[in-house]
């Protein structure tokens, strides 16, 4: 299973977990399975057409999926996938 790094503002969906393990062959599957495991999280990452929101960056390893195959980017079990807001300001919970 791939390791998914969850940014602070989305940890309310993962019961506070900074990382979760998700089974997936592509980023699209990974987001679907992330939603199944943690309902509500997909809407924060993707818009209503299913595309990754403009201000959200998804990295497989060190590479932004926009520079790879976007949602069709392959994910291996050994991969670390990071979801990172495109900004640095005001994204952290106090809890």
């Amino acid at each position: 299973m791939a390791t998914v790094r969850i940014p602070t503002p989305l940890r309310k969906y993962t019961q506070g977990a900074e990382e979760v393990q998700i089974n997936a062959g592509t980023v699209r599957e990974l987001i679907e399975n992330l939603e199944t495991a943690h309902p509500g999280i997909r809407e924060r990452i993707c818009d209503d057409k299913g595309a990754v929101r403009r201000f959200v960056n998804v990295f497989v390893g060190e590479e932004d999926i926009r520079f790879l195959d976007n949602l069709d980017t392959a994910v291996k079990d050994s991969d670390e996938v990071s979801i990172v807001p495109a900004i640095a300001g005001g994204t952290t919970t106090t809890s």
């Binding site: 602070t8 201000f55 640095a88 300001g89 005001g90 919970t93 106090t94």
Partner: peptide, 18 residues
């Protein structure tokens, strides 16, 4: 910003922030 996960750099979503 209307949500903790946002892209308005420099602005704070106070309900979820310090």
């Amino acid at each position: 910003p209307d949500d903790a996960m946002h892209g308005l750099e420099g602005l704070k979503h106070i309900p979820s922030s310090l």
